[in-house]
Amino acid sequence: MTAVADDCCVTPAPRFGTRKAVLIVAALAAAGLAAVIVFALLSGDAGVVTNFRARLAAPSLFHPFGTDALGRDMLARTLKGLALSFRVGLFAATASTVIALVLALVAAGGPRWADAIVAYLVDMTMGLPHLVLLILISFAFGGGANAVIIAVALTHWPRLTRILRAEILQLRQAEYVTISRNFGKSPLHIARHHFAPHLIPQMLVGLVLMFPHAILHEAGLTFLGFGIEPTTPAIGVLLSESLRYLTAGKWWLGLFPGLALLIAVLAFDAIGNGLRTLTDPRGSQS
């Protein structure tokens, strides 16, 4: 609360520009993530080639993250694992967003019973323990990257469905939409020009904020052995392998991939929050 006070120029202490900070962090995060993807695309065989003369080497200038039991560079493996995680995250989050949009449209635009069914599905999915559901679905689809994508996609839509449903209901009631209809505008016109510009930013934010969850769950599933094949350099695989050498003091095998995962998740969260700040009209204040 601003103090209503003294005669002259009581301006509240200039607050740190929250919005500016959020935007800078988001931009840095996006740049970092882009660098990971670029590396994974250009690195070729790095991290796959074995080198038995440099097995389990501690971090050095040449191998900043060290090497594993087969002498493979852990930096390359971590970055490749992250890139794979992004790919899984992208597909899963996109699929989940599409599911959320379709269900929200059905719930908000369809008959009352359809709304009830969607509400039931949302409550049920949110009520079940996430990890159990993930394991069951991934197992049912036979494991591997595709199964992980399906499992994550099928479990992450409820929150966004709720948000989009509420938005659509609000838009349908909007006076300017009624007026547009009364001008003889088609449902398609209204969807394109009134609904979409409002919903697309919401969806984008939802999608980006789903990313970190998708990546974490991918790693979790893989770590537990229900996800990606152990031959692929996924973060979950690296972490799982590192356990075997942890007691032998090979700390770098677990620390760097884990840290990279943590940073990537935080980076996506920062981007999502940045996008939300930009698109939320209420965010335009302070």
């Binding site: 909007a174 006076e175 300017y176 007026i179 009364n182 009134h194 009209p281």
Partner: peptide
């Protein structure tokens, strides 16, 4: 056509 008391609601923001 209908005109209301509060034109701000009748315009897409």
């Amino acid at each position: 056509q209908f005109l209301s008391q509060t034109p701000i609601f009748a315009a897409n923001p």
